[in-house]
């Protein structure tokens, strides 16, 4: 079959979408826009719980250590004692690290939501 004939025939074969194709598409996009903020709201609430959880557990540990709970354990008759000050420093550092990470996540989620 010659080229110009093929071209002519294939031009005849152009297809058309259904009439409501574009409307359906725009409707889908609009519905996605309304779903995203809802998801964002859900995750924001989850992050709040996570922050309060970390702060709660951290504060509990801090109090226990401060008021004399010092871990001691024996391994083959060697007694291990952990001092209060380094433990407090490590707990505080971990607490701040966790809170910082969650706040950063929240900040980037807010920026994403705005865009």
């Amino acid at each position: 079959m010659e080229e110009d004939i093929t071209k002519n025939l294939i031009r005849k074969s152009g297809m058309t979408t259904s009439e409501d194709f574009t409307d359906k598409l725009l409707l889908k996009i609009e519905s996605e826009k309304t779903v995203h903020p809802l998801l964002g709201y859900r995750y924001t609430r989850m992050r709040h719980y996570a922050i309060f959880g970390i702060i709660g557990v951290g504060a509990g540990l801090f109090t226990l250590i401060y008021f004399g709970f010092l871990p001691e354990f024996n391994v083959f008759d060697f007694q291990f004692k952990i001092n209060r000050i380094p433990l407090l420093i490590i707990t505080t550092w971990l607490l701040l690290l966790g809170a910082n990470h969650i706040l950063k996540m929240q900040h980037s989620a807010n920026l994403h939501g705005k865009s």
Partner: peptide
């Protein structure tokens, strides 16, 4: 976006 979709949808469908 609607303008763009209307312009290209038929060829894309083919």
């Amino acid at each position: 976006f609607r303008q763009l979709v209307d312009k290209y949808k038929d060829v894309s469908l083919s």
